[in-house]
């Protein structure tokens, strides 16, 4: 902790006021989102007054409508799509990135330097240039409009491999050498030694991968055509720009549904989350 000199009490109070004012600015739109999601269309549609900030009676039916009960949005199915994509991507991607990171950190093999340089290069390449052929390749592979298009391209990432290499690099070589002499296989060493030691980094990467997959918008917009395969962000975007555009309470209920899993995950695993973001600084 820094030992910055203590300013006067007045300054301290002013600093608290400013920080909490900014923090409140972060929260207010979300609070407004939830409040609106519980109002009637009429309540939400008129200019706010002090007495109408809170809904008169909580309209849970907006959530039913958004989820699919009233047939207005049918988010339930898209929830399922997004969950499958995010969970499968996270599990497989973290496993692949961790194994590749282990190989780059602790093993010797032909072509290692070139492969690692290529891995780093992928972090700097512009999506605007490569998405076109990524799409074309997906369409040739028959992935377009299939769940594969949302999962397979993300099963490895330059950043994931790099981060895992950094984290596993901290595992002491002595441990691995001893295990090797005992005749342990490479996978055994990864599983029994590297994995437990690098576990905090692995969870951080898992959360980060899940977050990116869940929130992903541009790529699904490109590769998903039919309504059946849409992910939750696409469905919410559609909901708000189609005929029900004016129904802000249902839209806000949908936005709340979209946001809730990550907020929950964030509160459960805040430390890992913060570390997950802090580690992006490692790219430097």
């Amino acid at each position: 902790m820094s030992a910055l000199r203590r300013p006067h009490a007045g300054v301290q109070i002013a600093v608290h006021a400013v920080v909490y004012a900014v923090a409140l600015t972060m929260a207010v739109p979300f609070v407004w989102m939830v409040l609106t999601s519980l109002k009637t269309d009429l309540e939400a549609g008129s200019a706010p007054t002090w007495s109408t900030l809170l809904p008169e009676a909580a309209q849970w039916s907006n959530y039913v409508a958004a989820w699919g009960g009233g047939g207005r949005a049918n988010l339930g199915r898209f929830y399922w799509n997004s969950t499958v994509v995010a969970v499968v991507t996270t599990l497989l991607a973290v496993a692949h990135n961790a194994l590749a990171g282990f190989a780059f950190a602790k093993m010797r093999f032909a072509g290692k330097r070139v492969m690692f340089a290529l891995t780093l290069a992928t972090m700097m390449l512009p999506m605007q240039v490569f998405f076109i052929f990524a799409y074309v390749l997906c369409s040739w592979l028959g992935y377009v409009d299939n769940v594969q298009a949302l999962v397979v391209p993300f099963l490895a990432s330059g950043f994931g491999v790099f981060y895992m290499r950094q984290a596993i690099g901290a595992v002491p070589d002595d441990l691995l050498d001893a295990a090797r002499i005992d005749g342990m296989t490479s996978f055994g060493m990864f599983w029994a030694i590297a994995r437990p030691i690098a576990w905090p980094a692995i969870t951080a990467l898992a959360i980060f991968t899940f977050m990116n997959s869940w929130n992903s918008f541009f790529w699904p917009l490109i590769v998903v055509d039919s309504i059946d395969q849409k992910t939750l962000p696409l469905a919410v975007a559609d909901l708000a720009s189609n005929a029900y555009y004016s129904a802000w309470p249902v839209t806000m209920a949908a936005a709340t549904i979209l946001v809730v899993p990550l907020i929950l995950l964030f509160f459960i695993a805040q430390r890992a989350f913060v570390r997950g973001v802090a580690m992006t600084g490692l790219k430097e």
């Binding site: 590749a100 190989a103 290692k112 990524a134």
Partner: peptide, 19 residues
């Protein structure tokens, strides 16, 4: 090592480097 690296490298190659 190639067993660990091959698939991730293939993904990066097919969906990023080549495109």
């Amino acid at each position: 090592a190639w067993g660990f690296v091959a698939f991730p490298m293939a993904v990066l190659f097919v969906f990023i480097l080549l495109p």
